[in-house]
Design a protein around this nucleic acid. Sequence first.
DNA 1: AGTTAGCACTCAGCATCTAAGAGTGCTAAG
DNA 2: CTTAGCACTCTTAGATGCTGAGTGCTAACT
Lengths: 346, 346
Amino acid sequence: MELNERKKRILHAVVANHIKTADPVGSRTVARSYRIGLSSATIRNEMADLEEMGYLKQPHTSAGRIPSQKGYRYYVDHLMSANRLTDEERLSISRSLGLDKMREIEQIIANAVKVLSSVTNQTSLIMGPQFKKSTFQQMRILPLDEKRGLVVLITDSGFIKNKVIELNQSLSPAELHQVVSYLNQKLYGLTIDQVTTSLINELKRDLFRRLEILEQAFILLEESLREEQQARVFLGGTTNILNQPEFKSVEKVHQMLSLFEQESLLFEILEKNLSEEGIVVKIGTENEHEDIQECTLITATYKINQRILGTVGVIGPTRMDYQWVIAVLRCLVDQLNRTLSSDLQT
Amino acid sequence: MELNERKKRILHAVVANHIKTADPVGSRTVARSYRIGLSSATIRNEMADLEEMGYLKQPHTSAGRIPSQKGYRYYVDHLMSANRLTDEERLSISRSLGLDKMREIEQIIANAVKVLSSVTNQTSLIMGPQFKKSTFQQMRILPLDEKRGLVVLITDSGFIKNKVIELNQSLSPAELHQVVSYLNQKLYGLTIDQVTTSLINELKRDLFRRLEILEQAFILLEESLREEQQARVFLGGTTNILNQPEFKSVEKVHQMLSLFEQESLLFEILEKNLSEEGIVVKIGTENEHEDIQECTLITATYKINQRILGTVGVIGPTRMDYQWVIAVLRCLVDQLNRTLSSDLQT
DNA sequence: AGTTAGCACTCAGCATCTAAGAGTGCTAAG
DNA sequence: CTTAGCACTCTTAGATGCTGAGTGCTAACT
């Protein structure tokens, strides 16, 4: 089953050429452009072999060959050289990320996705940091007037959530302070999804006398738990797919764009790759979701202080410049990780 | 220049029919479907007149007529009956808005745009409430630890902004409190865009001794001023334009979608209509921005406590179901206004 | 054995053509 | 003023033919 050297070179040539031109590539093109030193007839025979083995396919009887999904997979796994970016390229990415100027994590994320899509010329998507995976750091209640207060919830990784609540029962500042410090003590260091309803109930029991204010204060926690269970997905360069010749028909565009509008679906797709570290390439039907089985999805995870926060990726037709996209993605994630870990450290 | 009754009816028939079918409508269709009691020949003559007067046009020599921009304008201004929604329709919109369950203004806005696009089957857009038009209500500084504090800025209309700042100089709680109450006193009731740099500088002079902490605290104000000058624009149903036959070519789709990606441009477009109360219909070249001169934009403003907060609108091809869209938009804005004013009142 | 040249064959893409159908404008009669 | 009738125009869809790119096969060559 292993390909000999010559077949590898021919497969490589076909894939590379097709990625560049989007056209089926014929034996003559391979013979001419890549110095293999063989005639087109020989290459024709080899290509016929490769087709039989499933690495190439013909869109119609008398056209050149295009890589099959298996062909792309082999290319990614064995043929493609790891393209390191030049220093200028890295610098340019770094500059447009503008990480030095940003403070808020959402801002950084939203900007990263823009950069990624414009550099790769594909659609890119990034899962915002998962709130429920952040750890509780502290909670404060800030009285606004007699009847209302502001609950502020702070986690590591730069999340601050707040909510105006109504204080049905007026507590003295001292009492309020007592409640809050009790909560802080109990919750410190837990991740948000460890703050289960049962834990909340337990705390409620302990503090039964201040139940009413607790009720209100915990609405924030519970709502956060519910709403933010699905972190936001940021999209960039959705219109880039329109530049790809494989999306010249309006129906296909429609299909993709409708998918892009369903944030929850995108989230599911990205979440699948949350566990694996490093870069993951899913080609065609390797993707579970039906609507993207004609696409390739390349993802990587980004971290803060060694903890995986979310997934960032690029989606496009299976004919994609794998080398370039992977190199860019790697560079971007590197920089993200570094900045997030140093800057937002608490 | 005034159209006689018969011409009006014919124009009405042509516009209504074309809105429904997207095809050019011929004299025979008008004669048949609408009980005008005239033969197609007579109607042909009248249509020729209407064309000469600029209300209709022919896409090519031997096709039916389609309304010109002027024709649509006349339809909207004089022919269209104000379509009141049925109670079920109003209820259905109300339910899907789910205003009773929402708390945060951004959430309400983001949901409203979804509802609007799905009900009208067009792309809809809504300008988030303009932060700079909200009035300052109070500011607090919440010490987190020795070196850091959380600045919280609260306006009416439900805005809460916050930011972690570093306190270079440790102030005693009492001093901090003093600074903060001074600021609150000075700023209360001002809109954010009245908090100009010169005012800030003035305050700085007054408080020169606490300059350093002020410096940090005001970063929040200044950044808010800058960043949020452009409120967010929320989009819904961007792919709906793909259902419209006028967007069957990929280039046009590309043009529109690229426009949709430029938030700042959308903002400008919406901002133009911020001053006018009620529903504004801009047809074709009545829009200033070039890229939407083949479209119609219908907008309305929404308010909180009598103050205009932002603009919500629907965009689509000039062939649009004006009656329906206007009715829906009116209903939606009504409900928004009512909920915002009662719920978020402070 | 493996490689290569040559040749017949296939097929998408493009342009050209035709027929059908829809709709108009004009004219003359009601 | 209205209408029937007719010639004319123009789009659309389907059919036809041509061209170029590319293949598969065979036979000759190394």
